[in-house]
Computed example of a mutant assay.
Amino acid sequence: MTSDTSTPTDTSPAPAAAAAVQIQLAVLTALAGGALAAGSYLGVVGLLVAICLVQLSLALSWLFGTAVPGRKGGLALAALAAAGADAAIMHWPDSGYSPVLGVLGLAVPLLFLHQLARGVVRTRVLESLADITVLLVALVALAGLIVLRRQGNGDILAPAALGVITAGLVASHFTDAVFPAPRFDPAVARGLPALVVGVLVGAAVGLLSLHRVIDLAGGRAAFVGAAIAAVACLLSIAASFSGVHSSLAPAGTAGPASPAVRLRPVAAVLMTVALSTPGAYVLVNAVSG
């Protein structure tokens, strides 16, 4: 008889390494959100420039950070979708997100044509199609910030929404760097306290920045801030979960990280900010309306 003295493999990251990752994500979030907020303070043109820079960074970091098949064609589709959404929103600012839906509708057949054009090297078709589709949705979602900026009280609403998203995410990441427990997943250094802290910080920022809007006076401003921060923090947790369980960096892999792996934190942050903007637009208008 032999006894099994082996112990279960601990797949959770080292505390120091996990804390460093969360601090990195917090810094990247502050830079991205700060750039968009600064652009919104400068006006519609300034916001458009900031959005274009974020869209470019998101497309490059996502396509090359996820090592998605068909990157060249995906980059061309991303450029067309981002330019089309920005131009449509600038031309029809009073139509809400409707012009963006038109851009996505036109992108659907192009997505399938792109896969067909890959020819004999066409592999991992579903993965490529899914990753590029998510990217296009995030790119056109950012254009909604222009709609928010150009509507009534947009000079207050757009910077405030971006401030809530940024502050909530930064607070959440720093909390996870210090105390990531209880965790949502053993392998992901993201805990429930960080979500609570992010929501509370979002409520505080919303109350401070939106109380001047009559339709959001009192508790409505805090509620909107908390709701926007909750959406952003949950998306961030989902991005962290997806990154840890990705096949790009298998657990236990030795050696320096590949350039693709180094780009993944940038992609995760920009994707989270981009996908949070439609939620911010809907919540602000639903509560104030």
Rank of each mutant, 00 (worst) to 15 (best):
S3A: 10
T5C: 05
P8G: 12
P8K: 12
T9D: 15
S12L: 04
S12R: 06
P15F: 13
A17C: 10
A19N: 07
V21P: 00
V27N: 04
V27K: 01
T29V: 05
L31I: 13
A32M: 08
G34K: 09
L36W: 04
G39M: 05
Y41Q: 13
V45L: 10
V45Q: 10
V45S: 11
V49P: 02
V49Q: 04
V49C: 03
Q55T: 12
L58D: 03
W62N: 02
L63P: 03
T66E: 08
T66C: 05
A67D: 13
V68E: 02
V68L: 14
R71D: 03
R71C: 03
K72I: 11
G73H: 14
A79S: 12
A79T: 08
L80H: 10
A81N: 14
A85V: 12
M90F: 15
H91Q: 12
W92N: 08
W92R: 11
V100Q: 03
V100R: 00
L101D: 03
L101E: 08
L104F: 12
L104W: 10
G105N: 12
V108G: 11
F112L: 14
L113Q: 11
H114V: 08
L116A: 14
A117P: 03
V120N: 10
V120T: 15
T123Q: 11
T123K: 12
S128I: 13
A130V: 15
A130T: 15
D131A: 15
L135C: 07
A141G: 11
A141M: 08
A143N: 04
L148V: 15
L148C: 06
R150F: 10
R150D: 04
D155P: 07
I156E: 10
A167F: 00
A167C: 12
L169E: 08
T175I: 13
A181V: 12
P182Y: 13
A187I: 04
A187P: 06
V188F: 05
L192T: 11
V197F: 00
G198I: 01
L200C: 08
V201M: 14
V201H: 11
V201P: 06
A204D: 07
V205C: 04
G206R: 07
L208R: 12
H211A: 10
D215G: 10
G218S: 09
A221E: 04
V224Y: 00
G225V: 01
G225L: 07
A226H: 02
A227R: 00
A229D: 03
L234D: 00
L234H: 03
L235N: 01
S236A: 03
S240M: 06
G252I: 05
T253S: 05
R262C: 15
L263I: 06
L263Q: 06
R264I: 07
V266S: 12
V266K: 09
A268W: 02
A268R: 02
S276R: 00
V282Q: 01
V284P: 00
A286W: 03
V287H: 04
S288A: 07
S288K: 06
